[in-house]
Simulated scan of single mutants.
Amino acid sequence: MSQELKTRLGIASLVGLMVNAVLFGAGLIVILMVPALNAQAFAALPVMILISFAIAAPISWAIAPRLQARYWRGRESDFIAG
Rank of each mutant, 00 (worst) to 15 (best):
M1F: 01
M1I: 12
Q3V: 11
E4A: 14
L5Y: 11
K6S: 15
G10S: 08
A12T: 06
S13D: 03
L14S: 06
V15M: 10
L17T: 06
M18C: 03
M18A: 08
V19N: 03
V19D: 13
F24R: 01
G25F: 04
A26C: 09
A26T: 09
G27L: 04
G27S: 13
I29M: 05
I31T: 12
I31R: 04
V34P: 00
V34C: 03
A36S: 15
A36T: 15
A36K: 14
Q40N: 12
F42C: 04
F42V: 14
L45G: 05
P46I: 06
L50I: 08
L50R: 07
I51H: 08
S52C: 10
A54I: 06
A56Y: 07
A56N: 08
A57F: 14
P58Q: 10
I63C: 01
A64L: 10
P65L: 08
L67C: 09
Q68F: 01
A69R: 12
A69N: 13
Y71N: 14
W72H: 11
G74W: 02
R75C: 01
R75K: 12
S77A: 11
D78M: 05
D78C: 05
F79C: 02
I80V: 14
A81T: 12
A81L: 08
G82Q: 13
